[in-house]
Each structure stands twice: as C-alpha cells, then as structure tokens.
Simulated scan of single mutants.
Amino acid sequence: MAPQPSEPPVPTAAPPSDPTSTSANSTTPSSSSPSSKAAGFPDIVKNDPKRTGFDPKKAWWVNYFKLLTGEITPEGRFHYLEDAYRRHEARDCAKCEQWRDWAFEHSPMVRFMREKVGELNGTLDERNVVCRRCPARLTEDGAVHRQSGGFSPDHGILICANGLRDRYHLEDTLSHEMVHAWDHLRWKVDWVGDKNLKHAACTEIRASMLSGECRWSREAVTRGNWKLTQQFQDCVRKRAVQSVMARPRCKDDVQAARVVNQVWDSCFSDTRPFDEVYR
C-alpha cells in the first residue's frame, strides 16, 4: 500500500455519526445543500403523493394495498420503503445488535479482525460498533443511493440496520469496515482524498477482497452476477470504484476507475493481516 506505517489509535467512545468511509452501496452527498449543488450533484427527489401515489399520512395498509394493485409508482415505492424503515427502526436496530453480538462471539472472520485491531492498540466492541437506520436518497437522475455501513477514524463503525438481510450479511459488512479500521491503524489513510485518492482506493480494494462480500455465492446467488472467469476480481474492482466515487474529492466515475487501476496490482495482492484471502 502507498501510505507509510503509522499507528494512530481508534477512539472507543462516541458512536459514528459521520462515517468517512462507506461500503460499496454508498450514499452520495445530498444536493439539497448549497455545497452539494455547487459540486453538481443531482437534486434529491421529494415525495409528491399526487405524482407517486404514496401518501405517508394514510395508514400503512392503505399504501400497501395501493402498492400491490400498482397504484404506486416506482418512485413512490422508494418513498414507501423509506417510510417503513422509519416505522420499524427500533425493531431493525435491535435485530442488528443481536446479530452484531453473535458475530463478535462466533464469526471466525470478525473474531480474527478484532484480535488484529487489538494488536495495533485499537478497540472494537458494542461501544463503537453501532446499529442505526441509514436513510437512502433518490436523485432526479433516477439513482438510489444507499449504504450498508461506514467507518470513521473518530467514532468507529456504523452498521445500517435497515439494509441487512440476515446475520451473514452483517458479518460481511462488519468485516469490510473492520478491514478499514485495521488499515487506519496500520497506515494513516487519507480517507477523504485531500492529498490524493489512492489511499481510499487501496483500502476499498482490500476491504472488498478480504471481507467475503465478493465470494462466488454472494455475488452469483444473492446479486445475480456470475461469470466463468474473473468474477471475483470484477466484483472487487466494481465495488471499489463505487466507494471511491462517494468521496468528496472524486470528480466522477472516470477518475474513480483510473485511481483504482493505478493501485490495483499492489493492493489486490496485499492480503494483510491474512496470509491469503480467507473467504
């Protein structure tokens, strides 16, 4: 990796409120703010019941019936799901915390990474690995921007409780962010890209490669993407590019792909702290 060794501590106090590193399904900055507008981000689409058919003032079952009968548009379906996530936030967070505690206790990957973070004088536990609802954004270009989790050097790891399918999905997400935490302790990563985006690209390549989120069963069965050759490499590259694109200093997908390609050979071959790709 490009950065030189350094070992800043990971704080163990406050939960993450503004993660600077997100997983592959990253949320782009809101364009409703002046700075986002100046940066050229598309406007955030607000719900209009007359246009979408979804009315949050009506009972949930009324909207559900309208959804089943096709009276709610695809845009309305997005707003319907976001409303459901708000209503079920407490339930989703409680389940997420249960799965997190299971991973701390039983997941070989999570236990190993927790041990390696500890060897670098860092601590990851229930105090700084937190579950929260992560709002998604629908932009006027039709893109839905979601995130599965994030890592902040100042706060810890965020797990998006409303985006989890099962405890194994949490295991992959948590493992991804733990690789970021290890990288931060081992090298002082330029997360935002103030100097250049190579640091961010490298840690995203490593996190997607080592966490297990690009293994064949996850990519082919869950996401429906499969091919006979280069599937693993293509998945890692694609998710790294998507994550780099979410960085404030990244101009577009062309720059993100170029930076990922520049560090690909060295970072894809770097499996530390593992001897080889575990999953």
Rank of each mutant, 00 (worst) to 15 (best):
Q4W: 02
G149K: 06
V192G: 09
Y85C: 00
F268D: 14
N25P: 03
D166R: 01
L67F: 10
E105V: 12
E204W: 00
T271L: 05
V189D: 04
R127L: 05
C96S: 13
V236R: 01
D270P: 02
K66Q: 04
S33A: 12
D48H: 09
E71Q: 15
L120T: 11
Q255M: 02
F65D: 12
P56T: 05
P9Y: 11
Q98G: 06
V130E: 11
V254P: 11
G142P: 03
V236L: 05
P5E: 05
P135L: 11
H180F: 13
A201R: 00
G70A: 08
P135V: 03
T20R: 14
K188E: 05
A59F: 01
R51T: 15
D141A: 11
H106A: 14
K66V: 00
S33Q: 09
W102H: 00
V260F: 05
H106D: 14
F104H: 13
C202D: 08
T22M: 15
F65S: 07
V189E: 08
D252R: 03
N261R: 06
D265N: 03
N128R: 04
R186C: 10
I157P: 08
Q98E: 14
D265P: 05
R51F: 12
D183E: 15
A240C: 03
V263K: 04
L210T: 00
H155K: 11
C267K: 09
C134Q: 10
R146K: 14
T27L: 08
R137N: 14
R186M: 13
G122H: 02
S269M: 14
C267E: 12
F232P: 06
R132N: 03
A39N: 13
S208F: 14
V45A: 15
T203V: 02
E140L: 00
V244F: 02
M1G: 04
F274K: 12
K57F: 01
S36K: 00
D252H: 02
